[in-house]
Computed example of a mutant assay.
Amino acid sequence: MNSKQIHLPQYLDYASTTPLDPLVFEAMTPYFLEDFGNAASTTHTYGERAAKAVKQSRQLIADAINALPEEIHFTSGATEAINLALKGAFLTYRHQNPHIITAQTEHKAVLDTCAYLEEIGAEVTYLPVDPEGLIDLAQLEASIRKDTLLVSIMVANNETGVLQEIKEIGKICQSKGVWFFTDATQAFGKVPIEVLNTSIDMLCFSAHKIYGPKGIGGLYVKKGIQLTPQIHGGGHEFGLRSGTLNVPGIVGLAKATQLCLEGMEETYGRLKNIRDDFESEMEKAGNIKVNGKNAPRLPHFSNFQLLNEEAEAFILRNRNKIAVAQGSACNSALVQPSHVLKAMGLNDKDAENSIRVSWGLKLESKYSNLNILF
């Protein structure tokens, strides 16, 4: 029986998710087939081997951000980690410190969690951003009160790739005696992050953004911070997150982290050159206007307004050629004007007419033929 070859569009949505690296798959495979034991069942060899793999993976990830292994807690992904950090902190300290500070451009996992916390008594300050997507550090400092519990500002925005001044934010938080939680999901494995020299108290990350498996992520919690668990039933993960550990996923997360760190400098330079060349050519041709262009950005992100065509029409016309995003994956069920771009000052029309292109490791050509589609 003859089968027709399926020609998939060129994938340019790496900010949404990434393909599994074959080396990651190879590292995970034994923990599905031979070393399938429960890491909590250490009375026999199967459990011991699984527990050893988890311990080694925890150490590798801790080393990647200059943390202690017992400060790394595995979760199902960044969304769960965000909920654990924000809800867990508020429920523990709500009576003394009910105030939380975040930004209008945070991921929906942060914004929706903060909205829920407001319903149960939290007071939340949502900081605006400038046209490049950056918060005002002086405004942040002025917003911190005596009853402020924590500041939640992401390292890199998931729609624009704009990088906040994390080190300075950490200094402000430390000087004011409040905790600094950061959503590092997009930046983890892409740019160097060290929790000690940036005064980060909590940080979340996810494997599927770095060529690892879906369904596994984690939360760094600085030693001494007490969080109220959100999942009960066995006291796993140092009592913070119950549930049988996803050993293959944890091994995959660690391997993906290792590979990203080893290739970080080369990958950063290569993808930045591709992005910069593309944006320069398209702007000269009058095809696009880049959102957040003058801010520090992750090297593989480009969020831009289409100047000669509606974004919906562009995506529909090229849906068999390229895969790109309009808005972010977390809002894909209903395409609405991006809350990130609107916070940066774009009107509904310009926000709706913007698309996000994100490059990755599996490029087939310098521009992936994107420039010829305009």
Rank of each mutant, 00 (worst) to 15 (best):
K342W: 07
G234H: 00
A85E: 06
I72L: 06
K176I: 04
P299I: 10
H73Q: 07
A184C: 13
A187K: 12
H107F: 07
V247A: 13
T228A: 13
E118H: 09
H7E: 13
A325H: 00
D183F: 05
G243I: 06
N197L: 03
I288T: 02
Q186S: 11
I274K: 03
A64S: 15
L33Y: 05
T105C: 03
E106L: 09
T42W: 09
A53H: 08
K321Y: 02
T45P: 00
E194A: 11
S76K: 12
L373C: 04
I200C: 08
T18Y: 09
E194L: 10
A67M: 02
D63C: 01
D13N: 09
E48R: 07
A142N: 12
G47I: 00
V124K: 01
T105I: 10
T105K: 04
I274G: 01
R317T: 01
L20N: 14
I166M: 11
K190D: 07
H7V: 14
A51T: 01
K108V: 08
G269M: 06
L346G: 03
P22T: 09
E266L: 06
Q258E: 15
A40K: 02
T75Y: 03
S199A: 10
Q10P: 00
K342L: 13
E265F: 13
K108A: 07
F90G: 08
A51I: 05
A333Q: 15
K209Q: 14
Q174M: 03
E165V: 00
A50M: 01
F32Q: 05
Y220C: 07
L127H: 06
G235T: 07
E119M: 14
C173N: 15
M282T: 01
G77C: 12
V335C: 08
R297P: 00
A85I: 04
H339E: 01
M344Y: 09
Q104A: 05
R275A: 05
F314H: 04
D276V: 06
D13V: 00
N2M: 03
Q96Y: 11
L196C: 04
Q164E: 11
T75I: 13
S175K: 15
T92N: 12
I72H: 03
N318H: 15
E165I: 00
I72P: 01
G215A: 09
S368K: 02
S365G: 14
R297Y: 03
G292S: 11
L370C: 01
L23V: 05
D183H: 10
R145S: 07
L253F: 12
A333C: 13
G212D: 09
T182Q: 08
P248R: 10
L23S: 10
I61S: 08
V290C: 04
V247F: 04
G345C: 06
D35T: 08
Q258I: 01
A187E: 06
L91D: 13
S365L: 08
A285R: 13
Y93H: 15
A254K: 11
F90P: 04
I101D: 06
